[in-house]
Design a protein around this nucleic acid. Sequence first.
DNA 1: GAATCGAATGTGACTTTATCACTGAGCACG
DNA 2: CGTGCTCAGTGATAAAGTCACATTCGATTC
Lengths: 209, 209
Amino acid sequence: MAAQHALLECLPSGLRAEAEQHAQQVHLSAGDVVFRAGDGCRGLPMVISGSVRVQMLGASGHGIVLYRMGPDDVCTLSIGCLMAGRGYRAEAHVEEPTEALLMPRQAFDRLMAASAEFRQQVMASYGRRLDDLMLLVEEVAFGRLDQRLLEWLKAHASGQPALITHQELAVELGTAREVVSRLLKDFERHGRVRLARGRVELLQSQEVD
Amino acid sequence: MAAQHALLECLPSGLRAEAEQHAQQVHLSAGDVVFRAGDGCRGLPMVISGSVRVQMLGASGHGIVLYRMGPDDVCTLSIGCLMAGRGYRAEAHVEEPTEALLMPRQAFDRLMAASAEFRQQVMASYGRRLDDLMLLVEEVAFGRLDQRLLEWLKAHASGQPALITHQELAVELGTAREVVSRLLKDFERHGRVRLARGRVELLQSQEVD
DNA sequence: GAATCGAATGTGACTTTATCACTGAGCACG
DNA sequence: CGTGCTCAGTGATAAAGTCACATTCGATTC
């Protein structure tokens, strides 16, 4: 076992060995769906490497990206499902080939009991996610879409063009495809971006604030 | 000490006595502000009775209600701040006279270490809050405002009229006062509500679905 | 290479929300 | 009884969402 999760690295070796023994290592390929809305939770996923996108579907059929999980993240969403015995409300899509550990509830509970460090990290991670969601609420409720789109592009399309469709961008922002298309067209007319099918390039002059 | 918090009731008596010894009981009056955006966190608030509204302010000056805390709730938001050492992003307003315990971080950590039951409840409560926020994201992103307003009224103004201003309703829904005014006026024209200054009465025929 | 099909994008018309700048109404207090 | 409040109503305009299509690009097949 070469790569490991930062949360386990901080454990004393005895606990760590026990944890590794109970955890199941899984490999996920790009495009895999880790869980869907309504699914039950079979353990706590801990991401070692890769990237997983968590999003939810509205009644209208539109979706919105809630957050992403990367290396050394734990799926805080799963903790809630695990503890409350509810199903997931969101769905998780693998974006890049991902290595993860699936920690059974029993083992997770033992770690929480035994290690103050582990506890602290898990709670902190929970706090960050809560924070992310609050930020998202604020953006969706009060943010202007052109600004949000521009910021997304700055974050994801600086340096090299983003390979993404308008539909996918709409899900990133929680809006409709047509709205994204029109905004991008406007940006193009103003020389802020260069567009091609499935590709959005942010022009140099726009990358600074 | 008469009233207590459900989370402490489930503890063995030794732990419970210790917890009660370290926790500080506080009384909050309607209108008090428990914390504001940017404040540091001085401990974990646990609500015994009463009601506290948690909301955040957008850059535009508009606000939106995130959730409410009632009897036997813990302020999950505080755990994140406590663990990550960040300030709060939201603000908490007392709506009804409220009794609460303020549990210092040290004491909280000892409880988390010592009681599986306590741990489980805290994590479950965290999960519910995440869920609330996800639901809110969906509503704000995809919900129609007239439906959201009507549902708010059904939840808070069935039986007796709601004593609330249009401005406050706007904050409940994360929108602008004018929008609420217009929608309510429409509802009134269609005989769904009766309006008075600072008062919205949902008419009987509307209370069923 | 041309035909064909499906996904991705473009667009017009219209509705719903948001914003701005006011006006008017109800209420408390001197 | 004014006189200031806060609360509510409204018109004009802009931004965003919805619906119904038209177009275009690329890959696959012939």
